[in-house]
Design a protein around this nucleic acid. Structure first.
Lengths: 335, 335
DNA sequence: TTGAAAGCGCTAACAC
DNA sequence: GTGTTAGCGCTTTCAA
């Protein structure tokens, strides 16, 4: 292992100067800088991060805690965070909690001394525990807010209300007047917002009937399970809690020779890459998840660096977009 | 921040005893241990990892480098690695290189002083560079071998030959005699094995015609692009380079009213979760990727800990399985 | 502009 | 079984 001492010896300066050259190059004479950097290069020196962390009280590491890295939703978010971290010179540790609150809790504890900050995505922790964490660690919440317990905690949220409105407006514009929303887990933060947003948007429109289902398992199998029941409700269009649910509905219907969008239109939430995998490609509404990951990292770094709160919003709301594909069309003429 | 000193003061022992209690509990009297652990608990003490790393020369961190975390293939592998790491008390850093060799190269350099070991999945680095890395860092290769340059480097590979044989046997068994293989990028390690495996398996069977395509872009769009061309070759069954390609073929065919498996049977590689998202669900062949991730971590930890090489195989080959779903069936009777 | 030196918190000899 | 102590490699006063 190459240390500051080796570099110092090689370039004929003290170890302090080596360190200074790397951290504060402007405080070193041109000549010295050149020699030190040359030595660094020749020896392939890289500062030992453990030593640096210990001394500076900073690790240069950010942790991103997600419920399930196999979920395309979090995979995309991770990608965004990763890219932004690299850009800003931080290392990213990704932790997968398998949707389990206890694991999340334990990981957060273990991580604490090893990181400069924490991004909790779709956290399963209670408001109380979350507030504790936010107090002891720089952290950013994604898809969650803590208005009551710790309003000062930065958050990145997707404007689910806007997303819902987009979906409803699209369907209404096509002429649909009877829509079923296949809702996700009642406890889910996103489900609450999506349901409410859809309800509100539906109310605003004349002659629009909305039927809500609840507690559909948020996977494609979950969608398959309720496919028949949904159809029995007689909608001309269906909104799925997320893309996976929508794909499940689509798959099951296709097997029963129900045509999409001929018989029913279908729209999903999140606009993940799976929308492009099927026929017809799924219309979906959602934010660019990489942007969400990006924003979370940026916000966290601001907090870590103690950038003044007022200059940038502490609560970032990401606007969703509607990606119109082939699973939505005007309703078939009623017989 | 709570340190050993605080715990020592609280429990009336020296800092050495605190450290010992945590690292080597058996070398401490029952009474002392109880008191120290109580203090640890009350104060919420967690050893500072930077300090520990610096002193021990070990970080307790493993890095997993993947080309693209959004790819379900690597996401699943990551999941497996993550679980195994937690089990063994290591932290996992996931790095996404965006399929770029330069980024991979740079990351490997930066990471070196911060980790105990490295898992390179589907590395884009040259054999030469890879050999260099393997020399200076404990590392495990996934989907790659280094027989010529550094045969001592542990590897985890999937038995692609066996996978190919499984696919061919399945189709042959159903009665297919004219099969098209839609191959992936020529430079890809997996493509080479899969193509060769399919070829070999096909040769062994009487009356089986095999047509190989090459350099299909390994995404669903790639599959869509070649869908028509593939069909023009007149196969009764098609094997896609991976699930995404197969799904692209399927989507495009469905849009042209070509029935699967009625008109052609279709089979994918990797058996990722996307096989269940479509209609008909895709028959696919592949290893359990979580097992691959698991195995890589295990092998790496053995190497880190210097477990004798002879006791465990250094090269682990994971056996694939065939998951028969609905996209394969006997060929339609020829007219 | 540079160097000497003090530690960051922890672990592992070594001494008792 | 327990305590004393010397650093791990680095950054950062402080003094020159």
């Amino acid at each position: 292992m190459v240390t500051v001492h080796d570099v110092a010896a090689r370039s004929g300066v003290s170890i302090a100067t080596v360190s200074r050259t790397l951290r504060e190059p402007h405080r070193v004479s041109d000549d010295t800088r050149d020699r030190v950097l040359a030595a660094v290069d020749e020896l392939g020196y890289r500062p030992n991060r453990a030593a640096s962390s210990l001394r500076r009280g900073r690790t240069g590491v950010i942790a991103l805690v997600v419920p399930d890295i196999e979920n395309p939703y979090f995979a995309s978010m991770t990608k965004g965070a990763q890219v932004m971290c690299r850009e800003r010179g931080y290392e990213l540790v990704v932790v997968d909690t398998s949707e389990r609150a206890e694991i999340e809790d334990e990981e957060v504890r273990v991580l604490r001394s090893q990181i400069d900050g924490l991004i909790l995505a779709s956290s399963r922790l209670s408001d109380e525990r979350l507030a504790e964490v936010a107090e002891t660690t720089s952290c950013v919440l994604v898809n969650r807010s803590l208005e009551s317990h710790a309003p000062g905690t930065p958050t990145v949220t997707i404007d689910e209300g806007a997303a819902a409105a987009l979906a409803v407006a699209h369907l209404y514009g096509l002429g649909h007047r009877r829509i079923v929303y296949v809702g996700g887990p009642s406890r889910s933060w996103s489900q609450a917002r999506r349901a409410k947003g859809i309800e509100t948007a539906a109310h605003e429109r004349d002659g629009l009937e909305l039927i809500q289902l609840r507690d559909c398992v948020p996977t494609s199998d979950g969608g398959r399970e309720v496919a028949e029941k949904v159809l029995a409700l007689g909608p001309t269009a269906v909104i799925g809690y997320n893309d996976l649910v929508a794909l499940g509905l689509l798959a099951q219907w296709t097997e029963s020779d129900i045509r999409v969008p001929g018989h029913v239109s279908l729209i999903g939430f999140d606009d993940t890459f799976v929308t492009g995998l099927v026929t017809p490609p799924l219309t979906s509404v959602g934010a660019d998840l990489r942007v969400v990951g990006d924003a979370a990292v940026e916000l966290l770094i601001e907090r870590i660096d103690g950038v003044s709160t007022s200059s940038h919003l502490i609560h970032r709301s990401i606007q969703p977009q509607l990606a119109v594909r082939s699973s939505t069309a005007p309703p078939a003429a009623r017989r």
